[in-house]
């Protein structure tokens, strides 16, 4: 890792400058993560101090992976993340391609598209929860006219669709901005050359534009999966609270419930460790991708 050719020399100043950041990181990031690792291999002692905590190797993990509720949560998280990612990226790409055709109206459309980024996930959840409210919401009213009885309080599928829509809606602006930037960086001459060779608009999109967008698409995929797995706690907590009958109980929400409501520290710590491994894998993938892009 390079620095400047010429550097300042001081025995203590660089340490003093780094101190606040490093101290906060040690106290609030490294230490708690170490604690989570530790707790994940212990069985909790009881509250009266009669039975001390015991070292149980990987028993917490074994219990967890044999627990149908946890396996259900894994499945729910997979469906939720993939659903949110595909919906939000698909819609954003469509809008970006359309906006990119515009010349005069490009900026005004962009302004309308970007502001949902500012809405907190919890608020996005509450908004859609209201729109989908079975008794007074507008969408169930319309669905009722075509003969579908919407009720996210009873139907797990309905609840899942609702939280996916709420989470994807909030993320459209982010994906839109990145797709638009990607589209604008595609050299115009390529598209013109293809047009002269007689390629239709659709063919030009699928054979030139889309492949050139693939680095951005891949980057956004990772970001969106991270978003759906970790940042959507508010959507779930403010609306379905994991229900009905575990249908929207994603991993992040389950860690919170097991740790704070059910007070099962060992299991919650084991879940934390699994989640950390997932984040680490995703971060590494993201960084490898960045290195590759810098190189070409």
């Amino acid at each position: 890792m390079q620095t400047k050719r010429m550097t300042f020399s001081s025995q203590w100043l660089p340490y003093a400058l780094l101190a606040p950041q490093v101290i906060i990181t040690l106290i609030f990031f490294i230490w708690p993560s170490y604690q989570a690792l530790l707790q994940s291999v212990y069985r909790q002692g009881d509250a009266f101090g009669i039975r001390p905590p015991t070292f149980v190797w990987f028993q917490n993990f074994q219990t967890l992976l044999a627990d149908p509720l946890y396996l259900n949560s894994l499945r729910v998280t997979a469906i939720f993340s993939v659903g949110t990612t595909i919906l939000s990226m698909g819609v954003a790409l469509l809008f970006a391609v359309m906006v990119n055709r515009m010349i005069r109206s490009r900026d005004s459309y962009t302004t309308f598209m970007v502001w949902p980024y500012a809405i907190a996930p919890a608020i996005a959840g509450v908004l859609w929860w209201f729109i989908f409210n079975p008794t007074l919401g507008i969408l169930p009213y319309i669905l009722d006219m075509v003969g579908y009885d919407w009720n996210h309080r009873r139907s797990g599928n309905d609840a899942m669709i609702m939280v996916i829509i709420a989470s994807a809606w909030k993320q459209i602006s982010y994906n839109f901005l990145f797709f638009l930037a990607g589209l604008q960086s595609i050299p115009h001459s390529l598209i013109e050359a293809a047009a002269i060779d007689g390629a239709s608009r659709m063919k030009r999109f699928w054979t030139i534009v889309f492949p050139l967008l693939s680095p951005i698409t891949f980057f956004l995929m990772v970001i969106n999966i991270v978003y759906a797995m970790f940042d959507t706690f508010g959507v779930i907590h403010a609306t379905t609270e994991g229900g009905p009958s575990q249908a929207t109980n994603i991993l992040v929400y389950k860690v919170y419930r097991d740790g704070f409501v059910n007070l099962n520290i060992g299991s919650s710590a084991a879940q934390s460790v699994i989640l950390m491994s997932i984040v680490i894998i995703l971060t590494v993938i993201q960084f490898r991708y960045i290195e590759r892009r810098v190189n070409y």
Binding site: T25, P32, S33
Partner: peptide
């Protein structure tokens, strides 16, 4: 410092709360 990227608060809720 880089490590903080990998440890969002959502994944280490209970121990951070204890600290």
């Amino acid at each position: 410092i880089f490590l903080t990227l990998m440890l969002p608060v959502e994944v280490r809720i209970v121990p951070t709360f204890q600290v």
